[in-house]
Protein backbone atom coordinates (compact mmCIF):
# COMPACT_ATOMS: atom_id res chain seq x y z
CA UNK A 1 0.00 0.00 0.00
CA UNK A 2 2.67 2.45 1.07
CA UNK A 3 4.62 1.47 -2.07
CA UNK A 4 1.81 2.76 -4.30
CA UNK A 5 1.08 5.88 -2.24
CA UNK A 6 4.74 6.78 -2.07
CA UNK A 7 5.32 6.32 -5.79
CA UNK A 8 1.97 7.98 -6.55
CA UNK A 9 2.92 11.16 -4.68
CA UNK A 10 6.26 11.42 -6.49
CA UNK A 11 4.84 10.59 -9.92
CA UNK A 12 1.95 13.05 -9.57
CA UNK A 13 4.38 15.72 -8.35
CA UNK A 14 6.73 15.30 -11.33
CA UNK A 15 3.96 15.11 -13.95
CA UNK A 16 2.11 18.10 -12.46
CA UNK A 17 5.40 19.96 -12.16
CA UNK A 18 6.19 19.44 -15.85
CA UNK A 19 2.76 20.61 -17.00
CA UNK A 20 2.46 23.38 -14.45
CA UNK A 21 5.91 24.87 -14.82
CA UNK A 22 6.59 24.12 -11.16
CA UNK A 23 9.19 21.45 -11.86
CA UNK A 24 12.03 23.54 -10.42
CA UNK A 25 10.09 23.96 -7.19
CA UNK A 26 9.47 20.20 -7.13
CA UNK A 27 13.19 19.49 -7.47
CA UNK A 28 14.07 22.03 -4.78
CA UNK A 29 11.41 20.56 -2.49
CA UNK A 30 12.87 17.07 -2.90
CA UNK A 31 16.28 18.14 -1.59
CA UNK A 32 14.93 20.58 0.99
CA UNK A 33 12.64 17.86 2.40
CA UNK A 34 15.46 15.34 2.53
CA UNK A 35 17.57 17.75 4.56
CA UNK A 36 14.58 18.64 6.74
CA UNK A 37 13.99 14.94 7.48
CA UNK A 38 17.52 14.57 8.82
CA UNK A 39 17.23 17.78 10.87
CA UNK A 40 13.92 16.57 12.30
CA UNK A 41 15.38 13.21 13.29
CA UNK A 42 18.48 14.75 14.86
CA UNK A 43 16.30 17.33 16.59
CA UNK A 44 14.48 14.48 18.31
CA UNK A 45 17.65 13.19 19.98
CA UNK A 46 17.53 15.44 23.06
CA UNK A 47 13.91 14.93 24.06
CA UNK A 48 14.19 11.26 23.17
CA UNK A 49 17.24 10.75 25.39
CA UNK A 50 15.58 12.61 28.27
CA UNK A 51 12.34 10.62 28.17
CA UNK A 52 13.97 7.28 27.50
CA UNK A 53 16.18 7.90 30.53
CA UNK A 54 13.15 8.69 32.71
CA UNK A 55 11.31 5.67 31.25
CA UNK A 56 14.20 3.40 32.11
CA UNK A 57 13.97 4.51 35.75
CA UNK A 58 10.19 3.95 35.71
CA UNK A 59 10.81 0.51 34.27
CA UNK A 60 13.42 -0.46 36.87
CA UNK A 61 11.22 0.85 39.70
CA UNK A 62 8.39 -1.43 38.56
CA UNK A 63 6.04 1.40 37.52
CA UNK A 64 5.68 0.19 33.92
CA UNK A 65 4.65 -3.27 35.11
CA UNK A 66 1.98 -1.73 37.37
CA UNK A 67 0.54 0.16 34.39
CA UNK A 68 0.70 -2.95 32.22
CA UNK A 69 -1.36 -4.88 34.77
CA UNK A 70 -3.78 -1.98 35.10
CA UNK A 71 -4.96 -2.04 31.49
CA UNK A 72 -5.15 -5.82 31.19
CA UNK A 73 -8.95 -5.90 30.69
CA UNK A 74 -8.86 -3.49 27.72
CA UNK A 75 -5.53 -4.69 26.38
CA UNK A 76 -6.74 -8.28 26.11
CA UNK A 77 -9.29 -7.19 23.52
CA UNK A 78 -7.24 -4.61 21.62
CA UNK A 79 -3.91 -6.44 21.66
CA UNK A 80 -4.65 -10.16 22.06
CA UNK A 81 -1.18 -11.17 20.87
CA UNK A 82 0.66 -9.33 23.69
CA UNK A 83 1.13 -11.63 26.72
CA UNK A 84 -0.30 -10.47 30.06
CA UNK A 85 1.94 -8.08 31.94
CA UNK A 86 4.40 -7.67 29.03
CA UNK A 87 6.34 -4.37 29.27
CA UNK A 88 4.99 -3.31 25.84
CA UNK A 89 1.59 -2.77 27.46
CA UNK A 90 3.12 -0.46 30.06
CA UNK A 91 4.81 1.62 27.36
CA UNK A 92 1.60 1.74 25.32
CA UNK A 93 -0.31 3.08 28.35
CA UNK A 94 2.35 5.71 29.00
CA UNK A 95 2.33 6.76 25.33
CA UNK A 96 -1.46 7.09 25.33
CA UNK A 97 -1.47 8.96 28.63
CA UNK A 98 1.12 11.40 27.26
CA UNK A 99 -0.95 11.88 24.09
CA UNK A 100 -4.16 12.42 26.03
CA UNK A 101 -2.46 15.09 28.13
CA UNK A 102 -0.94 16.74 25.07
CA UNK A 103 2.65 15.96 26.11
CA UNK A 104 3.78 15.44 22.53
CA UNK A 105 7.53 15.31 23.13
CA UNK A 106 7.08 12.66 25.82
CA UNK A 107 4.62 10.63 23.77
CA UNK A 108 6.98 9.85 20.88
CA UNK A 109 9.85 8.29 22.92
CA UNK A 110 7.35 6.24 24.93
CA UNK A 111 5.63 5.11 21.74
CA UNK A 112 8.93 4.14 20.14
CA UNK A 113 9.81 2.15 23.25
CA UNK A 114 6.47 0.36 22.88
CA UNK A 115 7.32 -0.42 19.24
CA UNK A 116 10.67 -1.86 20.27
CA UNK A 117 9.00 -4.12 22.82
CA UNK A 118 6.32 -5.16 20.31
CA UNK A 119 9.08 -5.98 17.83
CA UNK A 120 10.56 -8.42 20.36
CA UNK A 121 7.30 -10.40 20.15
CA UNK A 122 7.30 -10.28 16.34
CA UNK A 123 8.31 -13.48 14.54
CA UNK A 124 8.62 -11.71 11.17
CA UNK A 125 10.90 -8.72 11.88
CA UNK A 126 10.22 -7.09 8.53
CA UNK A 127 6.42 -6.96 8.83
CA UNK A 128 4.05 -5.14 11.17
CA UNK A 129 2.09 -7.25 13.69
CA UNK A 130 -1.64 -6.82 14.31
CA UNK A 131 -0.85 -5.20 17.66
CA UNK A 132 1.53 -2.69 16.08
CA UNK A 133 -1.06 -1.64 13.53
CA UNK A 134 -3.74 -1.38 16.23
CA UNK A 135 -1.42 0.72 18.37
CA UNK A 136 -0.55 3.06 15.50
CA UNK A 137 -4.15 3.32 14.28
CA UNK A 138 -5.19 4.50 17.75
CA UNK A 139 -2.13 6.73 17.96
CA UNK A 140 -2.61 8.49 14.60
CA UNK A 141 -6.29 9.07 15.22
CA UNK A 142 -5.08 11.17 18.14
CA UNK A 143 -6.63 10.40 21.48
CA UNK A 144 -6.38 13.71 23.26
CA UNK A 145 -8.21 15.95 25.67
CA UNK A 146 -6.14 19.11 25.42
CA UNK A 147 -6.09 21.23 22.28
CA UNK A 148 -2.66 21.48 20.65
CA UNK A 149 -0.79 24.57 21.85
CA UNK A 150 -0.39 25.67 18.21
CA UNK A 151 -4.19 25.89 17.74
CA UNK A 152 -4.63 27.83 20.98
CA UNK A 153 -1.82 30.13 19.88
CA UNK A 154 -3.42 30.83 16.50
CA UNK A 155 -7.04 31.11 17.60
CA UNK A 156 -6.65 32.75 21.00
CA UNK A 157 -9.84 32.89 23.05
CA UNK A 158 -11.93 31.37 20.23
CA UNK A 159 -10.08 28.07 20.64
CA UNK A 160 -12.53 27.27 23.44
CA UNK A 161 -15.32 26.93 20.85
CA UNK A 162 -13.79 23.86 19.29
CA UNK A 163 -12.99 22.03 22.53
CA UNK A 164 -16.10 19.80 22.36
CA UNK A 165 -16.04 19.35 18.55
CA UNK A 166 -12.42 18.15 18.75
CA UNK A 167 -13.34 15.71 21.50
CA UNK A 168 -16.25 14.31 19.46
CA UNK A 169 -14.28 14.12 16.19
CA UNK A 170 -11.31 12.44 17.84
CA UNK A 171 -13.56 9.90 19.59
CA UNK A 172 -15.22 9.03 16.29
CA UNK A 173 -11.92 8.73 14.43
CA UNK A 174 -10.40 6.55 17.17
CA UNK A 175 -13.45 4.27 17.10
CA UNK A 176 -13.18 3.95 13.32
CA UNK A 177 -9.43 3.29 13.67
CA UNK A 178 -10.02 0.39 16.07
CA UNK A 179 -12.80 -1.14 13.97
CA UNK A 180 -10.79 -0.73 10.74
CA UNK A 181 -7.64 -2.27 12.23
CA UNK A 182 -9.62 -5.27 13.59
CA UNK A 183 -11.52 -5.73 10.36
CA UNK A 184 -8.56 -5.40 7.97
CA UNK A 185 -6.06 -7.53 9.89
CA UNK A 186 -7.57 -10.81 8.70
CA UNK A 187 -7.90 -9.83 5.04
CA UNK A 188 -5.61 -11.89 2.81
CA UNK A 189 -4.31 -8.83 0.94
CA UNK A 190 -2.82 -7.50 4.18
CA UNK A 191 -1.33 -10.83 5.25
CA UNK A 192 2.33 -10.99 6.30
CA UNK A 193 4.61 -11.88 3.40
CA UNK A 194 7.32 -14.20 4.62
CA UNK A 195 10.76 -13.25 3.44
CA UNK A 196 13.04 -15.81 5.02
CA UNK A 197 15.92 -15.07 2.72
CA UNK A 198 16.32 -11.62 4.21
CA UNK A 199 19.46 -9.61 4.75
CA UNK A 200 19.28 -10.03 8.53
CA UNK A 201 19.14 -6.28 9.00
CA UNK A 202 16.04 -6.22 11.19
CA UNK A 203 17.63 -8.17 14.05
Amino acid sequence: MLNYIWFGLIAIAVVTGLFNGTIDAVTDAAFASARQAVELAIGLVGAMALWLGIMRIADKAGLVAVLARGIRPIARRLFPDIPDGHPALGSIVMNMAANILGLGNAATPMGLKAMKELQELNPEKDAATDSMVMFLAINTSSVQILLPASVVGLMGARAGDIFIPVLVATTISTTVAIIAAKWLQKRPRFAVQTTHADDGEAA
Binding site: M1, L2, K125, A127, A128, A180, A181, Q185, F190
Partner: peptide
Protein backbone atom coordinates in the same frame (compact mmCIF):
# COMPACT_ATOMS: atom_id res chain seq x y z
CA UNK B 1 12.13 -0.90 14.43
CA UNK B 2 12.99 -1.41 10.76
CA UNK B 3 9.56 -2.51 9.58
CA UNK B 4 8.97 -2.17 5.86
CA UNK B 5 5.79 -4.23 5.37
CA UNK B 6 3.26 -1.87 6.92
CA UNK B 7 0.28 -4.15 6.05
CA UNK B 8 -3.09 -2.54 6.82
CA UNK B 9 -1.70 0.39 8.82
CA UNK B 10 -2.05 3.00 6.06
CA UNK B 11 -5.61 2.04 5.15
CA UNK B 12 -6.74 1.90 8.79
Amino acid sequence: VGIRQTRHAVVA
